[in-house]
Every structure is written in C-alpha cells, then in structure tokens.
Amino acid sequence: MVEPKPHVLALIPARGGSKGVPGKNIRDVAGKPLIAWTIEAAQQAGCIDRVVVSSDDEAILAVARACGAEVPFVRPAELAQDETPGVDVVLHALARLPDVTWVVLLQPTSPLRTAQDIDAAVARCWQAGAPACVSVTEAQTPPWWMFRLSAQGRLQSFLPERQRPQRRQDVPLLYALNGAVYVAQTDWLRQTRSFLTTETVAYAMPAERSIDIDTPLDLEIAACLLRHRAGG
C-alpha cells in the first residue's frame, strides 16, 4: 500500500509587539517587508503545501495577505505576549488547521534562510526517520571561554576552569540553535510540546544565513547581506 503524501504546513509566527525593533516584522529590509523574505522562501520550497502566518496584528496580516500567505485566523492576544512559549503558538495553529501531518516553523526574524534550507531540513528529518529537525550553526564562542562578572567586576568562569582547552584547535565543534527552521511531525509535537528532544536531528547552516534579527544592528547586517545576495 502506498503511503499517503505528508501534508506539510509552513507556519510563520509574527506578533505585533516587538520591543527591541518596533514593528520589525513589516520593516523594510533590502526593499521588502521583513516577513516577505520568509514567506517567499516558504512558497519556493518544494516540500511545503501551505504557507500560513499567525499574528495578532492586522498590519502584519495585511502584509502577509499581500505577499500571498494564508491568514485563516487571528492569533488571540494571550498568545502574543513576550512570555508566550513558541510551541503554544504552533499548537494553536494546528488546532485550527486539520490534516496537517508535518509543521515547519519559520520565524520571520531569519530572512537569510532559503527555500533550499527549508527543503534540506525537512529531507534531513525524513531521511533520518526522526520526528523533528532544527537548524543550527557552528557556535562562534565556546562556552569554556565565557564568563560571568562578580559584583566586584571580576571574571568568573562559566564552566570549570580546569576543563578549558588551552588552544582553539582543541575545542570540540559545537553548534547553537539559529532559529531559522523547526520541523516536526504534528502528533509527536502535540505529545512532547517541544521541538527539542533526544530524538531531534539537526540541519547545519552557515553563519551568513543564520542571522536572527533582535536588534537594529541585526537588521542592518541582514539588509546588507540580502542586497549582496541580490547583486545590489
């Protein structure tokens, strides 16, 4: 018996209450609203069947519609707070969108992620027989070389000093979440309520596509890289 084709939803969460960069999801970045870069990548990905934006903000929803994304519901205000867990936003959407077997969470603050990254992350998940995959990038600063500051301003090693490698060549390769792509089988996600478990596999992305916009400087760097990509 032939297995039914998975129904893959791209879900783009974009609330209106950003404090670090006010209105960032629809700010102009290299000639387009920030969210448009993610909508276009999702639309171009071969594995995606449906592109939906979840937002509490009518201005964001209007831009999403203009970019060709679906906006079948308005996210309730209680799920658009600073402290709202991201998985709650996903589960809210899945409760309103039947027949979705896989969900791909794409944060609009990762505009340099490409359609090829989305397809590769989903393929990595399926080829590994894993219920989830998240994108990562090589960590720039090893945790052994991170410090706290005491009340007196003195350095306190974050990890035990005796474990600190003496040379960069001795540091094991480490990866950090880059926030660009989260893939999960929907029934599994409803049970675990997390994309990150011991069953999750990783898809590695280069640093130049792993910018996660949280500050005005991030916005400027992303715009520069996007213009360079377009040849401008």
Rank of each mutant, 00 (worst) to 15 (best):
V2C: 09
P4F: 04
K5L: 14
K5N: 07
K5R: 14
H7R: 12
A10D: 07
I12G: 01
I12T: 05
G16L: 03
G17H: 13
S18Q: 10
K19C: 05
G20T: 11
G20S: 05
P22N: 00
G23H: 01
K24W: 00
I26Y: 02
G31W: 13
I35G: 00
T38C: 02
T38V: 03
E40A: 12
A41M: 00
A41V: 07
A42Q: 03
A42T: 04
D49C: 08
R50S: 09
D56P: 11
A59Y: 12
I60E: 12
L61I: 05
L61P: 01
R65M: 05
R65E: 08
A66C: 01
A66M: 01
A66S: 13
V71G: 02
V71C: 09
V74I: 12
V74T: 15
P76H: 13
L79P: 09
Q81D: 04
Q81N: 09
Q81P: 03
Q81C: 06
D82F: 15
E83N: 13
E83P: 06
T84C: 00
D88M: 14
V89E: 15
V90G: 03
L91V: 07
A93C: 04
P98E: 04
P98V: 08
D99A: 14
D99M: 05
V103K: 09
L105M: 15
L106K: 07
P108I: 00
T109V: 04
S110R: 13
T114R: 12
A115W: 15
A120C: 08
V122L: 12
C125G: 12
C125T: 12
W126Y: 14
W126F: 13
G129K: 06
C133P: 08
V134N: 05
S135L: 08
E138M: 15
E138D: 10
Q140N: 11
R148W: 15
A151E: 13
G153E: 02
E161D: 14
Q163Y: 13
Q163P: 04
P165D: 00
R167N: 13
R167C: 06
D170R: 05
P172H: 10
L173Q: 09
Y175W: 10
L177V: 15
N178L: 02
G179C: 03
V181P: 00
Y182S: 11
V183P: 01
V183F: 09
L189R: 02
R190H: 09
R193W: 07
L196A: 14
T198A: 10
T198E: 14
T198M: 12
E199L: 08
T200D: 04
V201L: 00
S210G: 01
I211F: 08
D212C: 10
L217S: 11
L217N: 10
D218W: 07
L219R: 11
A222P: 04
A222E: 04
A223M: 03
C224L: 15
L225T: 00
H228M: 14
R229V: 02
A230C: 14
G231I: 02
G231E: 01
